[in-house]
């Protein structure tokens, strides 16, 4: 574990917590893409499938973190699609998730390190996570604005994988550990946040709200 991965995981936890708090406190999921949250839940379940298969009772932080990620993302989907369904902005959350899931699944079958079920599921989860934020960014571009709290969520979510890139550089240099698939997908994922990062740094930091030119 290095400082980059530690802060990356903390940033990821913060993102999940910020979103849960926003929905719970405002009792509304306006401006939140339910599809992105569903895709994240699928990512966690397919990536941490080993938790369900051989549930090793030894409780270390990694197992606890995985359980937190899965339960928090499933609970977030429950809030969006059931509890606060009335506030879900379905017509703006209109990016076809199939266009992200099918290519990720296809690519996972073509480009992977080992052709076995667990590895394919893990690879699918990595590819899907890289594009899972697209419905959320698409929704913001359709509504033309993002609530400040949602911007903080996106900033934390984008920073997590950006910090992981630093972690991979660190591990390559000091541990000669490299996982090309995760690195390439992580770079693509972070690039997708670039224009949002620019808006966040130039606007939200100064206390303004993000409003996109309609």
């Amino acid at each position: 574990m290095n400082i980059f991965r530690l802060f990356g995981d903390l940033s990821h936890l913060a993102a999940i917590a910020i979103l849960l708090l926003k929905i719970w406190k405002t009792r509304s999921c306006a401006g939140v893409s339910g599809k992105t949250q569903l895709l994240f839940a699928v990512c966690f379940i397919t990536r941490y499938i080993d938790l369900f298969l051989h549930f090793v009772s030894l409780y270390n932080t990694e197992k606890v973190m995985k359980l937190i990620y899965i339960s928090a993302s499933v609970f977030t989907c429950y809030l969006i699609f059931f509890k606060f369904k009335a506030t879900y902005d379905g017509n703006h959350d209109s990016m076809r998730a199939e266009f992200l899931i099918v290519p990720a699944a296809g690519l996972a079958c073509l480009i992977n390190t080992k052709f076995d079920a667990i590895e394919i599921l893990w690879t699918f989860s990595i590819y899907l996570e890289a594009v899972a934020i697209l419905p959320q960014l698409f929704l913001i571009s359709k509504t033309g604005e993002a609530e400040t709290i949602t911007s903080h969520y996106l900033f934390a979510q984008g920073s997590y994988r950006a910090l992981y890139i630093l972690n991979w550089i660190y591990r390559y240099h000091y541990e000669s550990h490299v996982d090309t698939i995760a690195i390439v997908a992580g770079v693509v994922q972070t690039i997708l946040y670039c224009d949002f990062f620019y808006l966040y740094i130039t606007k939200v930091v100064k206390g303004q709200k993000i409003v996109l030119p309609a």
């Binding site: 995981d9 990694e62 995985k66 990620y69 893990w122 992981y164 550990h177 996982d179």
Partner: peptide, 10 residues
């Protein structure tokens, strides 16, 4: 390279 493929990241 025979580095073990460990999934030790979240």
């Amino acid at each position: 390279d025979c580095r073990k493929q460990t999934k030790d990241e979240l």
